[in-house]
């Protein structure tokens, strides 16, 4: 039979685990939102500012970083990179990215 202390420990564990996961997913939302807000200042439109990582957001952030020369070949940014990218967007590279993001560059793809 659970003592009062057992129950208390279980409760604390449940709250702790829930809080941890809740906080993590809220971190993910904030980072995605951070990307989306930045993208809105460029011509690479993110769709809606909902904090949800969708195709539009993925395409847009990849296009922006690629155009600005900040992606390695074959590199693709996905949801888990959101936080790291958000940090990049607030670094010294911010101005460069904003400048690059004002205009869209279409590469020549003649075979």
């Amino acid at each position: 039979m659970d003592t009062f202390l057992d129950k208390l420990i279980k409760l604390i564990l449940i709250v702790f685990i829930n809080t941890y996961f809740f906080a993590s997913s809220s971190n993910a939302d904030t980072s995605v939102l951070c990307l989306q807000k930045f993208l809105k200042k460029t011509v690479f439109v993110p769709g809606s500012l909902d904090g949800v990582w969708g195709d539009k957001t993925e395409n847009s952030i990849n296009s922006l970083l690629d155009q600005a020369g900040m992606l390695k070949p074959n590199q693709n940014i996905s949801a888990q990179d959101a936080k790291e990218v958000c940090n990049l967007l607030h670094s010294s590279k911010r101005d460069e990215l904003l400048e690059s993001g004002k205009f869209k560059v279409f590469r020549i793809e003649i075979d």
Binding site: V43, F103, K104, V105, F106, R107, I108
Partner: peptide, 9 residues
């Protein structure tokens, strides 16, 4: 530097 079409279509 690199050929391209620059446009905000």
């Amino acid at each position: 530097n690199r050929s391209s079409v620059v446009a905000n279509w």
